[in-house]
């Protein structure tokens, strides 16, 4: 097996490997993932560089990069990776670690992406299901960009493309309870790892 990187004291590498279930050391830096990735051009560091940074134990740089937030989890990279590394799982593991350990990328785009996900999860917590129109409205309000996509509204609403209401679950309370229990579980896991 080809292994390039700093092993031994590189706990970042072993943490990422453990959480993602992948072996980043398998990466031999061919760059096929970069050519395949539809959003690598928007990333601070494309997937190939992220893999190398993990191998070198550059924790701070990796956790602060916008790359893991731009990853669409489309799995195009892992499908073509000659070393069959689950790159999206690696990206996800790093993102989860960054959230838990409070590494915050302050760029507007990452903030907006993160805000969108938080609002989406709020909708589910409230209704058990996604309320599309309200989600869009809240996104505009909470990112202080009130008129975003407003030009789509007349057609989309008139044609019924985006309905005005939502059919909530009967037992949305079950989901609120689930959120609490899942949060506890998450704390238990990170407590273990810290």
């Amino acid at each position: 097996m080809i292994t390039l990187g700093i092993q031994g004291k590189n706990t970042f590498l072993s943490d990422v490997n453990k959480r993602s279930g992948a072996n980043v050391l398998e990466c031999y830096q061919c760059g096929k993932c970069v050519g395949t990735c539809p959003v690598s051009g928007y990333m601070d560091f494309p997937p190939r560089e992220i893999m190398q940074m993990v191998k070198l134990g550059l924790k701070n740089e990796t956790m602060m990069a916008n790359s893991t937030w731009f990853c669409l989890t489309c799995s195009a990279c892992s499908g073509r990776c000659p070393r069959e590394i689950e790159i999206p799982s690696v990206m996800e593991a790093i993102r989860h670690m960054a959230i838990e350990e409070n590494y915050i990328n302050g760029s507007t785009k990452v903030k907006e992406i993160r805000k969108f996900h938080e609002i989406f999860l709020d909708m589910i917590k409230r209704y058990g299901r996604n309320y599309e129109l309200r989600m869009m409205a809240e996104f505009n309000i909470r990112t202080r960009n009130l008129f975003k996509d407003m030009h789509l509204a007349p057609k989309a609403l008139l044609k019924g493309k985006i309905p005005l209401g939502v059919k909530p679950m009967k037992s949305a309370k079950a989901i609120q309870r689930m959120y609490k229990l899942a949060e506890k579980l998450e704390k238990k896991h990170t407590g273990k790892e810290a």
């Binding site: 996900h117 989406f120 689930m178 899942a182 896991h189």
Partner: peptide, 10 residues
């Protein structure tokens, strides 16, 4: 996408 982006348990 939002759940798996933000929280493994959820």
């Amino acid at each position: 996408t939002s759940a798996h982006t933000m929280s493994e348990s959820l």
